[in-house]
Design a protein around this nucleic acid. Structure first.
Length: 490
RNA sequence: CGGGAUGUAGCGUAGCCCGGUAUCGCGCCAGCAUGGGGUGCUGGAGGUCGGAAGUUCGAAUCUUCUCAUCCCGACCA
């Protein structure tokens, strides 16, 4: 176990907290519920952004930027939307401070805003208000826009990366001529998210749809990807919403079709946030620290020299120099840590804590033998290999580590996905063997609500690839045609 | 917003019951040794004890008020 990190078996949530802080991803700020994302954590987020951004562009989307502030009146235009967010909005009421004469800075009551401004909890309203001016004809459609932004949701209780008052995310907002097109877009983006989660984060996810209860405020249908964390709790890793014509109607966005008919446009919105950082940490890491999938690791290979003298360091550096160049030529992100202020053992522990996938150690012995020591972060295994052919070997290993991390998470999820056929069985599983529970449900919000109240488990999703199967609801006993996925969730 | 707890150096803590100017560890700085898994020794720097008021010759310690944070619940895409 690493210094200062509690074992994840002892206290999972404390382990997560320790890890985020010790691995230097983020820290609590002076502002309640808001975190400072530190350079190392931010560099991982930047990699996520870069990959996702390219995926969005490859599917035809463009980036734009809309205001942080939204006039309060915009929120009242879509009834269910305001219901969903009203209780967690930060509101700007004044635009000036003044000195009260006693050396205190106070709000200048003379500077009250005519209309309060809401700090965006999400941008549908300001964006749809804007789209009204952009869309007149079917020729203007589809409109495919994404925004990278910060949003604020005044949550009662926060946790680093998983639920912070302010967080970073991207939100896509698209407009289409037909419902079919909008649904196709919603599904497409869900697949983009799933692809990203599985192939980059090495995080296996279940693609599915939310029940009416769990749907986004203002959506007709909410799709999601759900992941399982190592403590058996589920985490919603991304959502994609089919908004129907709700926002177009609320903001009066109409277009003239090819046939000359006037109609409201069809909308989608979709987003992932810095919560993915939390998912990344919770899904793969261990008591020694982070375990980063190579594709997202800011540093993929770290080289640590082991030396007794400046002369020896110079000799090692000469070898490392060639190795570094060859790795960089293959676009492998490599760092040579030749600090003489820290000892090798310290560096080993530090890079394990930070989740660097591969460590190469080269010392005097290796110079003599033409070898290097390779240590994998994911398996914590070490091997001594010839320097010759090392670059290719490292390249292969990185791919293997990426696969292995995914496979491990997938195996974990499979082992912790169970079927329950009675309510007693269901409750026992929740307490004894947390994870996804596949069970029959009668399809009513009342049943879902009661299960939630009694067990804290929610329906995470109705999986897209669900097979139809006759059964009886675990609570009501009423007939059901398919199983849905339950879990306690973050 | 209800229930519980905690605020002492950058971090983690002892001291508080029973008042006398703050303990230890990590980290930090310097030197020497060391160097294939968080190195050892020696020396050093660093504290308005969350804040305010009160009791007292004297308050980290007792009293009152206040602020903040954390945990449980409620709340929550």
């Amino acid at each position: 176990m690493s210094k200062g990190i509690i074992s994840k078996d002892e206290d999972y949530s404390q382990w997560f907290n320790d890890l985020v802080i010790k691995a230097d991803l983020a820290e609590h700020s002076a502002v309640r519920g808001c975190m400072v994302i530190k350079p190392y954590g931010y560099s991982i987020w930047e990699k996520m952004q870069a990959v996702l951004d390219q995926m969005f562009k490859d599917t035809g989307h463009s980036n734009a930027y809309f205001p942080l502030f939204i006039p309060k009146s915009f929120f009242s235009k879509e009834a269910s939307h305001v219901d969903g967010f009203a209780k967690e909005c930060a509101v700007v009421t004044h635009y000036r401070l003044k000195n009260d004469g006693n050396g205190n800075i106070i709000v200048d009551e003379d500077a009250k805003l005519e209309e309060e401004l809401i700090v965006r909890p999400t941008s549908e309203t300001i964006i749809w208000n804007t789209y009204k001016g952009w869309i007149q004809s079917y020729r203007d459609l589809p409109l495919l826009i994404n925004q990278w932004a910060n949003v604020v949701r005044w949550e009662m209780r926060t946790r680093l990366f998983l639920r912070t008052t302010e967080f970073l995310w991207q939100e896509g907002h698209t407009a289409h001529a037909t419902a079919e097109e909008a649904i196709a877009e919603t599904e497409q983006m869900l697949h983009v998210y799933a692809d990203f989660a599985e192939n980059w984060l090495a995080l296996p996810v279940i693609k599915g749809r939310k029940t009416a209860n769990e749907r986004f405020a203002g959506a007709l249908d909410t799709y999601c990807i759900e992941a399982l964390m190592q403590d058996g709790k589920a985490l919603q890793a991304g959502t994609s919403h089919f908004l129907g014509q709700n926002f177009a109607k609320a903001f009066d966005v109409k277009f003239t079709s090819k046939e000359g008919k006037l109609d409201h446009v069809w909308a989608t919105s979709w987003g992932v946030s810095t919560r993915l950082m939390g998912a990344l940490v919770m899904a793969h890491s261990d008591d020694s620290g982070l375990v980063l999938p190579p594709k997202l690791a800011p540093i993929q290979v770290v080289i640590v020299p082991i030396f007794r003298s400046d002369e020896e360091l110079a000799q090692i550096s000469a070898v490392v120099d060639g190795l570094s160049k060859a790795l960089k030529a293959k676009n492998i992100r490599v760092k040579y840590d030749n600090r003489d202020t820290q000892r090798p053992g310290f560096k080993f522990a530090e890079y394990e804590l930070k989740g660097i996938p591969l460590r190469v150690a080269i010392g005097g012995r290796d110079l003599a033998n033409g070898t290097a020591e390779l240590a994998r972060r994911d398996t914590k295994t070490k091997e001594t290999v010839q320097q010759e052919g090392l670059v290719d070997h490292i390249e292969q290993l990185l791919e293997e580590i990426q696969k292995n991390i995914f496979q491990k998470a997938l195996t974990f999820r499979n082992e912790n996905t169970r079927e329950a056929n009675t309510y007693d069985e269901f409750k026992k599983m929740l307490d004894d063997t947390p994870g996804f529970i596949s069970a029959h449900w009668d399809g009513t919000p009342e049943t879902e609500q009661r299960i939630k109240e009694e067990t804290k488990a929610t329906i995470r999703c109705i999986p897209l690839d669900n097979k139809l199967e006759d059964g009886a609801c675990i609570l009501s006993g009423k007939p059901s045609t398919q199983r849905v996925l339950f879990a306690r969730a973050y």
